[in-house]
Design a binder for these strands. Structure first.
Lengths: 251, 251
DNA sequence: CGGGAGGTTGACAATCGTCAATCAGAGTGG
DNA sequence: CCACTCTGATTGACGATTGTCAACCTCCCG
């Protein structure tokens, strides 16, 4: 872990918030002036554990992380996937104790920001506060879509939906190639995200492949043959991501 | 619909927010001074429809409402249940278009507050803004628990979990009797909330009844025989509701 | 070359959904 | 007071999606 005051490290946070609300120069400066610590998180390492006190928020600079919860009998449910530019753990850090864990899916670079500094920023810059609030509201909207995904869609549709969400979000984050991307998760992790078993995830992806909706060079590299068809198969409508006009039409 | 400036109508909103953050006299006054309209919503009436522009937030004064989403093939997923004292639609009204519908489960009395006034209040009273933010974060925590509920628990456990959540929240709202309450929903609605079919909800409740975990005077009036056992059956841990110490031990 | 993680497949089991009939209770009108 | 109707609850028979178990394969890495 290394302290840093590099002026541009928090730029992704400015971008993220400016996407939601118009920020003036003072707002931007205030964000960039936040104290933070650079940190590298290894694959599988926990950033926050359920029931811990979370004292920091963190901004993803690279890599992927997941949020998950455990049932009493050991089942795991992944409730969100985070990527570059996203604020992890505004949720946990503003509340007393974490209600879910955050874990690195791949090696990650993050910027740690003390909870107190986030609160101070919010108090001093109402516009920034509003942007962060809206950001958490969009997170909540994604949660709702996931409830519907696991509650009311069959296996094939759930997987297709997740692949669509991934595709769009990767493009927005500036990752991902033209018609495809590399999945950062194993089939077991996909299963935990969709409420299925690894075996059935495998079967469902095989089906999507056989139907020509996706092509796989290797199990993790997804090529999307026809976005329209995949979106239809996944009952995917990007409305819940609350993107801007142009971005929603990316695919 | 009737305009009103009755000074105490918004008191539940003060209570709700003061539960999360300490509010000073000015904060409380500012909340109570919000302009609003009284409105009575009939059973089944929509308060907001998916994809609409939501221009108002609303505070539940009595009755129950649900938030729901529809799949492409007509399936419905209920993603939240709202009761007295809760702020419906901070979510929809701060974002451009509603990503889900809000519908009255029973006849409801509500106070409509214009979106602009909420934003103004948040800008002028940072502490109130923080309280509302935290409130939406708690909502998000409940969404995460619901994802786990429908994703990783079997039918009997899902139902038991929902019954437990209801019991606790009703007590907090000052509703519900000692060891039981009246469910405001049909079994079809329970099914939509748990990702099951009405028939299977019926079977699951029958099982819980046969096991002595609940008793039913009539299909909607639930008596909880042994809270401990029901909570265990439902894999229920109130941590995700982020209650205060005392409240978490209510049952 | 060996070991391990992750992916793939088949056989079988179980939970849950579907369909359809019946029942119970509330409200309505004659 | 009694059909009549409607909504919601209940039940049984059957079917299907999904889970379980177990084997085997593939690739990567030391």
């Amino acid at each position: 872990m290394a302290s840093s005051t590099s002026p541009s490290t928090l730029e992704p946070m400015v971008q993220k918030l400016a996407y939601r609300v118009e920020l003036d120069a003072l707002d931007r400066e205030a964000i960039l002036a936040l104290p933070f610590q650079h940190k590298v998180i290894e694959r599988s390492e926990f950033i926050v554990r359920e029931r811990e006190l979370a004292t920091h928020s963190c901004l993803m600079l690279s890599g992927y992380s997941i949020r998950s919860k455990l049932t009493g009998d050991g089942g795991r449910q992944i409730v969100a996937i985070q990527m570059k530019g996203e604020m992890v753990d505004l949720q946990n850090s503003l509340l007393r104790t974490a209600d879910h864990s955050v874990q690195a899916l791949t090696a990650c670079k993050v910027a740690y920001i003390p909870r107190q500094e986030i609160l101070r920023l919010a108090a001093e810059r109402p516009t920034v506060a509003r942007a962060m609030w809206i950001d958490t509201l969009v997170d909540a909207s994604v949660f709702r879509e996931w409830i519907m995904n696991v509650g009311r869609r069959d296996a094939r549709t759930r997987i297709a939906h997740l692949l669509c969400e991934f595709s769009l979000r990767l493009k927005l984050a500036g990752l991902g190639r033209e018609n495809g991307y590399e999945l950062p998760m194993t089939q077991e992790q996909l299963a935990d995200a969709t409420g299925l078993t690894p075996v059935h995830v495998n079967r469902s992806m095989k089906t999507l492949d056989a139907e020509g909706l996706i092509h796989r060079l290797n199990p993790r590299v997804i090529h999307i043959g026809d976005w329209r068809k995949l979106a239809e198969a996944g009952d995917f409508d990007s409305n819940y991501l609350h993107l801007r006009q142009g971005d929603a039409a990316l695919n």
